[in-house]
C-alpha cells in the first residue's frame, strides 16, 4: 500500500517540480470595453475562472479594441472574454474582430452579458466563438473554455 502511496506522492511531487499538471493551464483575457461601467459580473466571473484553474488576466474597464488585442498578444492568451452590459456590443465586438485581423491573429472571442437574442447570430457572424447572454449558467462558459485548443493564437511564428 505504501508503495502505491509513494508513487502517487512522487508523481505529484514531479508535477509540482516540472509543472506537468499546469502545461495545459488556460490563460484567459477578461475585459470590459468602452463606457461600460458595470464590472460586478466580470469580477465574479474572474473568480469563478480562477477557481476553475484558469489564469485570468483582467484588463479593467474602458478598453478600446486596440488595447484589448494588444494585451491579448502580449499575454499570449487562449481566449478573449468580453463582458458587456452597456448595449454597445454590436459596436465594440466587431471592432475587436477587425483589429485581430489587422494584427494577423486569430484568438477565439467569447462574449457575455445583456445581449438580445437577435444579436447572438449577428455576433457569431462576425466571428465570435460563443455568446453567453444573461441567464446563462456561468459554468457553461467554463466548460467551453476548457474545450478550446491551447495557445493556438499565432498564425505565424
Amino acid at each position: 500500500m505504501y508503495g502505491v502511496m509513494f508513487l502517487a506522492l512522487l508523481s505529484s511531487l514531479k508535477a509540482i517540480a516540472y509543472k506537468e499538471a499546469q502545461m495545459d493551464t488556460k490563460k484567459v483575457l477578461m475585459t470590459k470595453m468602452g463606457l461600460d461601467g458595470h464590472d460586478f459580473g466580470v469580477k465574479i466571473l474572474c473568480q469563478m475562472y480562477r477557481n476553475a484553474g484558469f489564469e485570468v488576466v483582467y484588463t479593467g474597464q474602458r478598453q478600446t479594441a486596440e488595447m484589448v488585442v494588444a494585451a491579448a498578444i502580449e499575454e499570449d492568451v487562449d481566449v478573449i472574454g468580453i463582458s458587456t452590459l452597456s448595449g454597445a456590443h454590436m459596436h465594440s465586438v466587431p471592432l475587436t474582430m477587425e483589429e485581430q485581423k489587422k494584427q494577423n491573429i486569430d484568438i477565439p472571442v467569447i462574449v457575455g452579458g445583456t445581449i438580445p437574442p437577435a444579436d447572438v447570430e449577428k455576433l457569431k457572424k462576425v466571428g465570435v466563438a460563443e455568446v453567453f447572454p444573461t441567464g446563462t449558467d456561468a459554468n457553461m462558459s467554463i466548460e467551453f473554455i476548457k474545450k478550446l485548443p491551447n495557445r493556438k493564437s499565432l498564425k505565424r511564428g
Binding site: 499538471a21 499546469q22 493551464t25 474572474c46 473568480q47 475562472y49 480562477r50 477557481n51 476553475a52 484553474g53 484558469f54 489564469e55 485570468v56 488576466v57 483582467y58 484588463t59 479593467g60 474602458r62 488595447m67 494585451a71 499575454e75
Partner: peptide
C-alpha cells in the same frame, strides 16, 4: 487550491 490565478497588474498600467 485550484491552480488558477487572477492577474490584475495590467489594470494599473493602462
Amino acid at each position: 487550491f485550484s491552480g488558477g490565478a487572477i492577474l490584475g497588474d495590467r489594470i494599473r498600467m493602462q
